[in-house]
Amino acid sequence: MSTSENKMWTARLRNAWQRNLPVDKLLPDDQPAYVASWIYVFGVATIAALGVIIASGIVLAFQGPAWYHTSDIGKFTNSMHFWSVQMFFAFMVIHLWGKFWMAAWRGNRVRTWMTGAVTFVVSIATAFTGYLIQTNFDSQWISFEAKDGFNSVGVGAWFTVTNLGQMLLLHVAFLPLILGVITFIHVLMVRRRGVVPPIDALPFDMEVRK
């Protein structure tokens, strides 16, 4: 590689990418033999549930927040959204439990854990804004109760849970974008580092380069 190419930003980005995440690492067709437990399916299951959430959410967004009160198809779509959120959290928490007991942050994987934990926190915020835009009794109640918590630390001056318009926009635009981006980074990190080896794995299975 020539020196001039080495200085180019584009070339540097491509080379770093190629070095860190070549396509056979991004989409591997084999895994270490220890990847043999049902616990491994819950990360993928979480993403699948997120997919159903986004799909049903897009349909809801096209029809507006009050549609599902009066339409049968609306009610069905809203129910898909509701139950996929319940599954999303259930799978995500099982995934989190699993990764905790594997100490999956070992071997330079701390940032993978951190992005996962941030995803959990952002998911809670996203779901919360969803509950506020149901335009039913539940959202009346939650907005009245929750405002005190946010007001008490000054956040309520900008994040106004009683403002339907604001909550609607945050729920369908800002928060899903953040959630999507962090999830994407999380998955890329998992692929880049590979699945964490077992605690007490045999030394000869690993090639340590100093």
Partner: peptide, 19 residues
């Protein structure tokens, strides 16, 4: 819901994964 989560977690660890 919480019991289902605990059962799924336990099952995922206890049930043998196909070879």
């Amino acid at each position: 819901v919480i019991l289902i989560m605990l059962v799924l977690f336990a099952a995922a660890i206890l049930i043998k994964f196909p070879k």
